[in-house]
Design a protein around this nucleic acid. Structure first.
Lengths: 174, 174
DNA sequence: GGGTACATGTAATCAGTTACATGATTTA
DNA sequence: TAAATCATGTAACTGATTACATGTACCC
């Protein structure tokens, strides 16, 4: 079971019979803001879960003949067990700008400033964008999704501040 | 070119002739704290870069006959171009605990509290651990590496605080 | 001198990425 | 009715993960 497996199990369990395209939309509207899941995986992964007995699938008769997925008892058991057990892994913070900063001693300080300014702008924009999304979620729907976005927003704000500091006083300048 | 490519290019450029094992150690000491690179990639990727003309390799004669890598002019050009251009991608925040929180409406609130408490402890521990590493780096060596870790530390502190709040007032309780 | 941990890789599998391709709806 | 966009997948490739395997140094 990969993270994608649990993502799919969660969507199917929460949103009833869904298609891969539905999940693609759900990703785009929420978790996908900071953890990207390519849509081809949202087509491939449910098939694996059907093979494993965690989902059942059926095809629409008319129209687009889409594949609809539903969770099985085994799938529900698996998901609930996973949700209940602590995660000891910590966070992967994958950021190419940060990797560039890591090697900034190899670059001229103008380059570092350029990268830092662009990152500061980006993270500031993302923070405001997500804040709007979270606001909408909080009002209408699931507080769990809103809470998840909240950590993302806090990260984006911290990142924006951090990159502004780097742009002002790049580590190579000393 | 993948992120791993640039990681390897950066290490080889910064630390002169290095072996894959050296890079494994470098990862472990720094960037690997929040972005994991499995050691098998640190063996595979340099070979790809040699094929592409970005690195040269030679074998030690005596002893362990290890493979040592050095950067070529083409490799240096590639690395410097990459370092100088802004990164528009943003950060991937991959965290299984956060994914669990995203689906917390499917779990009993005791489970959410359990996961949140464990995550709070974990992130608090990581924050103090990295702070020590960053302190050592700041004193002896490269301020760029220390700066990079700094964002990691801020994230860990924010995450620890966030999860404490979740544990106290889980979203499902309402 | 036997065990343990460090060091150095390889191999097999599988997931993830990118690109391609086509059918169905809407809109101009 | 043609164009554009939304919807729904498939295929090829390649990188990442996991597991295996063996050699070397150190320490008890």
């Amino acid at each position: 079971m990969t993270p994608t497996s649990y993502l799919v199990l969660g969507f199917v369990s929460r949103s009833g019979p869904v298609t891969s395209y539905d999940m693609k939309q759900l990703v785009k509207a929420g978790i996908g803001k900071f953890w990207s899941f390519p849509h081809s995986q949202l087509y491939a992964e449910p098939e694996r879960l059907v093979d494993g007995g965690f989902l059942s699938s059926r095809k629409e008769e008319g129209g687009r003949r889409r594949r609809l997925y539903e969770i099985t008892p085994a799938g529900r058991t698996e998901l609930e067990a996973w949700l209940s057990e602590p995660s000891p892994e910590g966070t992967e913070l994958r950021d190419l700008a940060l990797l560039k900063l890591y090697f900034c001693s190899l670059a001229p300080s103008e380059a570092v400033v350029r990268v830092a300014k662009s990152a500061a702008q980006l993270h500031a924009d993302l923070a405001t964008e997500w804040a709007a999304v979270a606001e909408a979620l909080r009002a209408s729907a699931d507080p769990c999704q809103a809470a998840t976005l909240e950590l993302g927003i806090r990260y984006e704000r911290a990142a924006a501040a951090f990159w502004r500091e780097i742009a002002e006083d790049p580590p190579t300048s000393t």
